[in-house]
């Protein structure tokens, strides 16, 4: 299609701001970060090229290794548990319960809270001296112990609990919309076929909800990658470095430890990992689109 010069101009001028933002903010900043990771910048950026030295340092850094371990544990558990609980809540509400609107609002409520507030609340709840353990003991269960948050090997699971508590409501809302989109006649057909309800959900309804699952998984996965504030407000990476996460590693080294080189190396590693996961998926989607 050939456009006249004036309409070309108006198209370009309309696209220009977005294009500039894209070029300067995303590509520009990302490239600069990648470049910085190849220098020995400390507190201030410099251009002394040192090759992959920062990456060598990064992957021998205990704190980084712990962060990576933690984000894998957190990512797998958080996404799968939030999906599982979200769908269970949605199925429960789908049974035409009374006061559905109220219950739905209550379930969705945690999502309206910031991660910092969520973190603080759960920090108190899980704190052995004033939270769940204290309450149980004061009720007379003298042996009750729930001290995951102060033990290094379990602290990361506390982040999972708080994260799942916050995100399940969102998954529930997405799934419920999917469930409500299911044709009523499919339910009738299944009843005539004599299928038990759980069987209908597992074999027929849930397989139909691919789009809802994709939406929920993408939203949850981005929450995993940017996990930072929950760690800061709940445990501040502790005890020791037991609940450090990559985003926190980057922020700490960038602004507190004055090590721009190492921070940008960590940030670039995160980006490459995300691309490595997303690129095959996008490629597969594009191929699928071509086939149709």
């Amino acid at each position: 299609m050939r456009l006249s010069l004036t309409s070309k101009l108006s198209v370009i001028s309309a696209l220009l701001p977005a294009l500039m933002v894209m070029l300067v903010v995303y590509i520009g900043a990302t490239s600069w970060t990648a470049w910085m990771s190849l220098t020995n910048s400390r507190m201030l950026p410099n251009n002394n090229f040192v090759g992959f030295r920062q990456y060598q340092l990064l992957f021998t850094n205990d704190r980084w290794i712990t962060s990576v371990h933690n984000i894998i544990i957190y990512g797998v558990l958080f996404v799968s548990l939030a999906l599982l609980i979200g769908i269970l809540l949605a199925v429960a509400i789908d049974q035409r319960v009374r006061a559905e609107d109220t219950i739905r609002s209550i379930y969705l409520y945690p999502y309206s809270m910031s991660f910092v507030v969520t973190g603080l609340v759960w920090q108190w709840l899980l704190n052995p001296t004033l939270g769940v353990q204290y309450v149980l003991r004061s009720w007379g269960f003298a042996g009750a112990t729930f001290d995951w948050i102060v033990r290094p090997e379990t602290a990361i699971y506390c982040l999972v609990i708080a994260g799942v508590w916050q995100a399940s409501g969102l998954v529930m809302a997405i799934m419920l919309a999917g469930l409500r989109g299911v044709d009523d006649e499919i339910w009738k057909a299944a009843r005539v076929d004599g299928l038990p309800k759980w069987r209908v959900y597992i074999s027929i309804i849930i397989p139909m909800m691919g789009a809802s699952f994709a939406t929920a998984t993408v939203l949850l996965s981005t929450a995993v990658v940017r996990l930072y504030d929950l760690s800061v407000s709940m445990t501040n990476g502790g005890p020791g470095i037991a609940s450090e996460v990559p985003a926190k590693f980057v922020m700490d080294h960038l602004f507190e430890r004055a090590n721009i080189g190492l921070a940008t190396a960590a940030a670039t590693t995160m980006l490459v990992t995300v691309i490595a996961v997303v690129a095959p998926y996008l490629y597969w989607r594009a191929r699928k689109g071509e086939v149709r």
Partner: peptide
């Protein structure tokens, strides 16, 4: 009884064979 619906109400993620046989299998 057996019933046929206006919107077909087929099980979308199952093959035709599975649609026909699923009720019997259960």
């Amino acid at each position: 009884i057996a019933m046929v619906f206006q919107s077909y109400a087929l099980y979308p993620r199952m093959s035709v064979r599975k649609n026909l046989s699923f009720g019997l299998k259960v």
